[in-house]
């Protein structure tokens, strides 16, 4: 058997866990194990290793599903999306999308856990500081563009997944919540810790539009339409957000 055929043969066997028909012609037995048992060592390790990675990356989802259902979901996911990236930190890249087709709550919880990882690994980027913001002349504010740094992300969810995730992290064994909209800001601090905070719908709208490239005046107008009371709160928000470094420093 040519090397290319042998590798495809073995990979199929390892990733499906099935014993191929010609195993005794391709693999030699040892004194203690048959050819199929020896090949089975690789397929057993394949699934257990990747399951362990998904369990670590989606620990809250595993809590929500229980270990057995999580293992079944992981197996279905790995069959549909076998890893194609050399780095295991990409293994769960499509897990949330896969779960969303089965359960909105599980999918959105998985999306939150995946986003925490993405924020952790995001590229560094100079951020806008409070003095930078204060130096902008008032006449230029309306047209100002403020983009989020790569390590800042926004999530909108139909379930309170951030509250669930926080309770799980604190060891409180949360139960599946009822549907309630939630808007979340995730960002990475200079010490590389990943933080999460609930947002109001108006805050989420404002930051989403800014990150989509809309000028500040237009983004503010849309946010005020959602919450006419927010006009007085905008300056403290921007002071806080710039202190937290969530906006990119504009190119000189």
């Amino acid at each position: 058997m040519k090397l290319v055929r042998l590798q495809r043969w073995m990979q199929d066997a390892v990733q499906t866990g099935a014993t191929p028909a010609r195993v005794d012609a391709v693999v030699l037995p040892s004194r203690a194990l048959s050819a199929a048992e020896r090949l089975g060592i690789y397929s057993g390790m394949y699934f257990s290793r990747l399951l362990e990675v998904l369990e670590q990356d989606f620990a809250a989802v595993r809590h929500a599903t229980g270990a057995a259902r999580f293992a079944a979901l992981a197996r279905a996911y790995l069959n549909a999306h076998p890893s194609t990236h050399p780095n295991l930190n990409q293994l769960g890249a499509h897990f949330a999308g896969d779960l969303l087709r089965r359960s909105r709550f599980l999918g959105e919880l998985a999306r939150l856990e995946r986003t925490v990882q993405e924020v952790f690994d995001a590229a560094r980027c100079p951020s806008l500081t409070e003095p930078d913001l204060a130096a902008v002349p008032p006449q230029r504010w309306a047209a100002m563009n403020l983009r989020l740094t790569p390590s800042t992300r926004l999530l909108a969810s139909a379930y309170p997944v951030n509250a669930y995730y926080q309770a799980f992290r604190e060891g409180r064994r949360p139960r599946r919540p009822r549907r309630r909209n939630e808007w979340i800001l995730l960002w990475r601090k200079p010490d590389y810790g990943v933080w999460r905070r609930p947002l109001t719908r108006a805050q989420f709208s404002l930051l989403s539009r800014l990150d989509a490239g809309r000028p500040l005046a237009e983004a503010l107008e849309a946010a005020v339409a959602l919450d006419p009371e927010l006009a007085g709160a905008i300056q403290p928000w921007f002071r806080q957000w710039s202190a937290e470094g969530i906006f990119q420093r504009p190119h000189a």
């Binding site: 090397l3 042998l6 495809r8 990979q11 990733q15 690789y42 394949y46 194609t84």
Partner: peptide
């Protein structure tokens, strides 16, 4: 070793003949 073929990655150190 090899770790995958056809664009896939097993994340294991697979043996060569």
């Amino acid at each position: 070793c090899w770790t995958g073929v056809a664009g896939r990655n097993s994340h294991d150190l697979l043996p060569l003949p």
